[in-house]
Design a protein around this nucleic acid. Structure first.
Lengths: 197, 197, 197, 197
DNA sequence: CATGAATGAGGTTTCATTCAT
DNA sequence: AATGAATGAAACCTCATTCAT
């Protein structure tokens, strides 16, 4: 229904919207707030987008598409369990660096959105995600690379959450590069924070 | 001008409200939904509470009060850095077990609520929280109990987040007791998941 | 979703709404106009009804239900073709007398509403309606009661339309009773307006 | 300040607009819908027309002008009451054949438009119309050509409505020519559908 | 002639809240 | 304690219209 409009303008507006959604939450964000931020009137947004929801949809689906581009490349590289985990974590922090707002939105809203048919791809993605991580961890345990006494499922949850929650405090252009943060994080998760006797 | 009403009824209603807030988010939750769940009409809630916000307030402040009862006891026990971290993590998972809904709400809403004067105590709590954890980690590094090459601030963030995000997947009465989860988590964070050569 | 509310209030409000819909057309009628007429604010209508459309729905379905009560009684009475036509016409003008607004709305909006699933019963009714009238006319021709050279389908359309369009000028409590109007109309359709040589 | 533009393009656009107005109702028709149908953008229509209302105006006034050309010719021909009625009915079905969309719009919208000054000519036309038909019927009764027991006013309404409502089901190029339909209709109205004993 | 983008008024709807009963 | 009905502010969205290009 919505006119094609210029792709650059759309992207600008989506960036603005994503920033506000991430800061205030999707529900708490008014369409007028987004329009204010973009220097136009609320109604004018509807020249570019069908609805507030379709902005959210486009933000999330764009993000997931790019995320899986990166993940699929890592998974196809045949790096072995430890290398794969390292690459996935690093890739994740890079995604946070590039799509901070989208990740923050995803983090806050994915659970209840996944129920709606329109956002069914969120559930799909979550399943694919789980399979990738869980499989790698299990292979690592089987190969003797990771500790045998781990509860793999629990470990998966811890790792998954910690990585993504970082989007809530990460600021692009801050002290640490995504690679540095990934390094620190991997160091903690792989080797622990305790000094080894 | 809310009447005193029976404290048990209040608590029941607050539990109901907390459950719905946790499931749908505070903003997305309508007062009518809470009332439905409680078997009454929306207007009737106002006999018990001043406003939707005051329900949220009571849920969060009750939770934080109990949380700090536990934390303060741990911090006063003089357990040493490693023991303190272990006790804090264990205590945290116990709080999640008892106040799952409140923790989930806190996790999702604290950041933007903290700006409002009414919820200033959230910011205070966060600061106290940071001081406790950060201090313990730093002391641990100084004592040679934790690795010297840690970025303490980054580590703090990772640990803090993972513990609390657990509220989003934890189900009381599930397979693992809070203590077991804490054990697994501490094992990962302290010693790492990698098998030691 | 909407509360049950008192049936009398609902009926009052529906009558008000029907009057305005009939006068201005459904689309051109604002919910605020209805509320004004009812002495309340626009939002308050939503305590009683889900939407503007659901008001329309209830108006039309209530009308059709009562219409078919009358029609079915006539059709079951075994009056013969001429008697059936007379009774159907008379019954129709009685319905116009009792549901003038609903008939006028039906007249104006039925065609495009029938496309929407929600108003599928309009199409059903139209089909049943056609079957009843067309069948009676055909039986009349077969029995020699009606002229053999009639284009039955065309006749059906003329008769059907004239009866219902009357809703647009009929005023209850005017000079003519529904029965008188029916009589005049039947006199024209059955015997013609030309003086017989 | 609408430019003159080519008259053919105007006529094309007006035909398109009339078709959509007739199908969906004037109010429910968006300017964008018309533009879509014409293969242009909504704003572009404003090069040709001042406003949506002015399109409606031009459609209706063009139609009425041509209608009265025909009617006036009939009325000036001195055909006698029965002949005049026959000629008016035939002329009417011819107009429906040529201006189906405009007639349908007129039928649906005339009543409420007539209140606006801009569309005052609709009320004028209606009055002239009534005078022509009513006068002919009355003369027919006085001359003994039509039955003396008719309620002339009621008969006028029936006849007027049936003729014009035909626009809602008539499809140009269908089975029956306008003249055939007029014949059938006149047969019914003048002589009745009942077989004469 | 037409496009692309925006305006601004106004529409339907939602919802926290109030209050007489 | 709770109901039923209403309020009023604010939300999302629509759409006729304008105008620089």
């Amino acid at each position: 229904m919505t006119a094609p409009a210029s792709p650059e303008r759309r992207r600008e507006l989506l960036n603005t919207a994503a920033e506000v959604f991430a800061a205030q939450g999707y529900n708490a964000t008014t369409v007028r707030r987004i329009a204010d931020e973009a220097g136009m009137l609320a109604g004018s947004l509807y020249y570019h987008f069908d609805s507030k929801e379709s902005m959210l949809d486009e933000i999330l689906s764009t993000f997931l598409t790019e995320l899986w581009d990166g993940y699929d490349a890592v998974l196809a590289a045949g790096l072995g369990p430890r290398g794969t985990i390292e690459a996935l974590v690093t890739e994740s922090f890079r995604e946070i660096d590039r799509h901070r707002a989208a990740v923050a939105i995803y983090q806050k809203e994915a659970r209840h959105l996944a129920d709606q048919p329109r956002f069914g791809y969120l559930a799909d993605s979550q399943q694919k995600f789980e399979k990738a991580w869980l499989g790698t961890l299990e292979r690592g345990v089987a190969d003797g690379v990771f500790r045998a006494d781990l509860d793999v499922r629990l470990t998966y949850r811890f790792v998954r959450d910690t990585v993504w929650v970082a989007a809530s405090w990460y600021r692009p252009g801050g002290l640490h590069s995504p690679e540095e943060i990934a390094g620190q994080y991997l160091s903690m998760v792989l080797d622990g924070i305790a000094e080894r006797g």
